[in-house]
Design a protein around this nucleic acid. Sequence first.
DNA 1: CTCCCGATAT
DNA 2: ATATCAGGAG
Length: 212
Amino acid sequence: MKVTKKVKDEMLAILENTYKDTKSALNFNNPFELLIAVILSAQCTDKRVNVTTARLFAKANTPEAILNMGVENLENEIRDCGLFRNKAKNIIATCHKLCSDYNGQVPSGFDELLKLPGVGRKTANVVSSIAFNRPAIAVDTHVFRVSNRLRLAEGATPNEVEKGLQKAIPMEKWSDAHHWLIWHGRKICRARKPLCGECPLKELCPSAAIDA
DNA sequence: CTCCCGATAT
DNA sequence: ATATCAGGAG
């Protein structure tokens, strides 16, 4: 089944209407807290990240303060999020770089964000978009899965899907559309048992289950 | 491609 | 029991 531009626009209109008021589920008060929360969110639920950051930020919410904790203490604070040794190492290295190169502030440029240890394309796009209000579509596991299922944008890698989405969606809606896809992926188009029966896109989706 | 990794939903 | 969770580095 071929998904035309017309159908893609219809899907986007429904997604926008359904998820109009969604935003990031991560809790943060400034760009630095958002950056740390997104690094922690790899292979971890945002709910778990919020529990962890609430405790962590109460003790340290600046690069200087986190460096003062040391790796051992940081590992213990973030252990519940999984991948904790890599994440702690990356967070420490990123805090060092923020202090040495950016006067303790998070840089607003995408390329500068990408160079921070533990920050890849997805994290850089999220921070760029949410903290600095730049148009961006971060392709995480939900956006990747939902985009391919709907054939809004197809690709074997997040990078390909990102390009496809940028083509399918007008730039002024990139950041919002990113959230529509996230929430659709979390609530309806789940990885395991997608709720096709109650999906607002079931008439248009080329991957919709016949039953349910 | 593999490794990192605890918590949680199914 | 195990697939999955707002991925990134080597």
